[in-house]
Amino acid sequence: MAIVIINPNSTTSMTEAMVSVAQSAAPDLTFEGWTSEKGSPSIQGPEDGEAAAPHLLDLVDRASAQGAEGIIIGCFDDTALKEASQRVSCPVIGIGQASYHYAAMRGWRFSVVTTLAVSVPVLEANIRNQGLGHAVAKVRASNVPVLELEADPMCSARTIGEEALRAEQDDDISAVILGCAGMVQVVAVVRDALKIETIDPVACAAKCLKWMT
């Protein structure tokens, strides 16, 4: 079976965008996107993540039962990642997790540009819990809501690009990580605005699973 990308929110277009990016990043693998129909339209902060976790884990169990070669948690918060990894035998990776470790393995000090401020403490805790607190300069909120990334991608790209440029100028870093699965729509614009590396977490997770499967 394919690598299953599980989107813990209910926005199907976001799932489809992630599959397209993953397939381009790792063409030797086959990706399939699953959307949590019982999830909220977006995950912004710990309460949304906690509400999404049970439905996400049901999909993890189903993917494993159907013989998935690997599972990608398609939310930058790495929703229920630890629980998912402990209950199935195939590799499970979060897109946040993949991007942090990729940057660290390259020796890059990084900042994260995410959506809203409510997500910042979640991401900071995830980075610390993975032992990478030394590698991060700052987690920045762009104040662009998740669903706005799809509703107005060009305006969102400009706003996120401006915050990424501030990170490049002020944070003494080598890379910016885009901190939302929905930012697959704005990667090219941000990358063109920066001189340092721009990390797309979905592409990063796909490449990591290529090494693991």
Score class of each variant (00 low, 15 high):
5 I>W: 09
6 I>R: 11
9 N>E: 05
9 N>Y: 15
11 T>Y: 15
11 T>H: 13
12 T>G: 08
12 T>S: 14
16 E>M: 14
16 E>Y: 12
20 S>T: 14
21 V>E: 03
22 A>P: 10
22 A>D: 05
24 S>G: 15
25 A>Y: 03
26 A>K: 08
31 F>V: 10
32 E>F: 11
38 K>L: 12
39 G>Y: 01
41 P>S: 07
42 S>D: 07
43 I>S: 03
48 D>W: 07
49 G>L: 02
49 G>A: 08
51 A>T: 08
52 A>N: 02
52 A>R: 01
53 A>M: 10
53 A>L: 03
54 P>K: 13
54 P>I: 01
56 L>I: 14
57 L>Y: 09
58 D>P: 04
58 D>Q: 14
59 L>M: 15
61 D>K: 04
62 R>A: 02
62 R>W: 03
64 S>L: 00
64 S>C: 09
65 A>F: 02
66 Q>H: 15
67 G>C: 08
67 G>S: 01
68 A>Q: 10
70 G>R: 00
71 I>C: 00
82 K>G: 01
83 E>T: 12
86 Q>Y: 03
87 R>K: 07
88 V>Q: 02
89 S>N: 04
89 S>D: 09
97 Q>P: 00
101 H>E: 13
104 A>S: 10
105 M>N: 03
107 G>Q: 01
115 T>L: 07
116 L>V: 01
118 V>F: 05
120 V>D: 06
121 P>I: 13
123 L>S: 01
124 E>W: 12
126 N>C: 02
127 I>S: 09
127 I>D: 06
131 G>V: 09
133 G>A: 08
133 G>S: 03
135 A>P: 00
136 V>Q: 04
137 A>R: 13
137 A>N: 06
141 A>Q: 08
147 L>N: 05
150 E>A: 11
151 A>D: 15
153 P>L: 11
154 M>V: 15
155 C>L: 12
157 A>K: 04
157 A>Q: 02
157 A>G: 02
159 T>P: 00
161 G>Q: 06
163 E>R: 10
163 E>A: 11
165 L>E: 11
167 A>L: 08
168 E>S: 07
169 Q>G: 03
169 Q>N: 12
171 D>P: 15
171 D>R: 10
174 S>Q: 12
174 S>R: 08
174 S>E: 14
175 A>G: 00
177 I>D: 08
180 C>K: 07
185 Q>R: 15
188 A>D: 11
190 V>Q: 06
191 R>M: 06
192 D>H: 13
199 I>C: 09
202 V>N: 13
205 A>V: 01
208 C>N: 04
210 K>T: 09
211 W>Y: 14
